[in-house]
Nucleic acid binder design. Sequence first.
DNA 1: ACCTGAACACCGTTCAAGT
DNA 2: ACCTGAACACCGTTCAAGT
Lengths: 231, 231
Amino acid sequence: MSPKRADTGPAVPGAIWLRERAPGRGGGLTRERIAEATVALLDADGAAGLSLRRLAEALGVHATTLYWHVATRDDLLDLALDAVFGEIPEAGGPGADWTGDITGYMHGLRRALLRHPWSAALAGSRPLTGPNALARAESVHVALTGAGFRGAELSAAAAAISNLVIGSVAVETSWQHEGEAPARRAVDEHLRRHAERYPTLAAHAPTLDDAWDDHFDRAVRFLVDGLAAAR
Amino acid sequence: MSPKRADTGPAVPGAIWLRERAPGRGGGLTRERIAEATVALLDADGAAGLSLRRLAEALGVHATTLYWHVATRDDLLDLALDAVFGEIPEAGGPGADWTGDITGYMHGLRRALLRHPWSAALAGSRPLTGPNALARAESVHVALTGAGFRGAELSAAAAAISNLVIGSVAVETSWQHEGEAPARRAVDEHLRRHAERYPTLAAHAPTLDDAWDDHFDRAVRFLVDGLAAAR
DNA sequence: ACCTGAACACCGTTCAAGT
DNA sequence: ACCTGAACACCGTTCAAGT
């Protein structure tokens, strides 16, 4: 009978943030080392390439050892995802222009998610309740309350801001998985062949060169303009 | 040596839409029957519960039989996802007010994705190139060109519209996976215990009652207002 | 053209046992 | 407190073989 395992507590997503961490005095594994190795493995091989056995090998440990530190594979994803949110630069207090703060946050979040192409899809698949994600959400709420947002309008604005980024980067990275250029070329040709079915789409097919940055920039402006109009 | 398999063609996501379908004369499996059973299995057990063996059992067939009709498990996800997009009501031509058309589309897309809680996360994880997704994208492009959007502004607007919905519903459904109420209660208590770290967040913690509809409604208005301001 | 059956190389997770 | 090792019940996918 093992004395105490990592799986104490309810089986909700994000549950790892509700548990105290193991003491971790010096020698062995720590939550940080595990998070770091998980991010590295995900960066190298994507979400499908992450297995407990491969991660354990990278850490020089037996696969089942990981179960002392995490309760489930999903815990690893929570650790890795919150590490990505830790890469978003801290705003350092609200600036003079709240729309600039929000715009900067959205671009900072996008850059962090793009750096780890597996992370945006993951951010849309489980609650973001890690300490870094909460700290960034706090900053957004500070900027929005400074602008005068309150109550349901505040919550809706904060949600729209992060949801637009998550959705945009998830879709953007979904094209990269097997090499973007061939996928896009195949779809372009498919659209041309069925131009009678999708005339407007075929006529305005996004160009092959990377317009992702430009489109995201415009999308952010659309939303921020709409937020500003509400004040 | 098998004569011809479903896996002809490049290994890009969405590749199933680039292949001709099997003739499917009467008796056996068809792409439609497979799609329908896949949706049902995903609805019942979520993305993690979908396996080729369980799907095959539901279809009264051996697991490896599916490989005649699809090249990979991912093909099944493409089939199921496009079936969900098929549930979005067709607009039936642009109405008098393009902002109303766009607003209606966003709500229709959200309702379809909510009906199948696995679908929003999936929509953010692979290119949406099925026939139903393309038809709905065509309608959005028609409405936006009618409003005067052109070129990069058109593409960015269309992307923002679907990305905000996908991100919003993905996040919303991610809370439901293990029962939303306990997850939310756990996070609320966690926020209260660390109120000194997240004061603004703790003070404005979203209420327990379901504000999802209201927040989404507001988010749509923020974006559509910003789009209207650009015209 | 379509379906079967055996087989391969994996998985996440458990549990008793070590130190 | 932390790590090991064997074991269980699964996976997606292949390939030769049937009809």
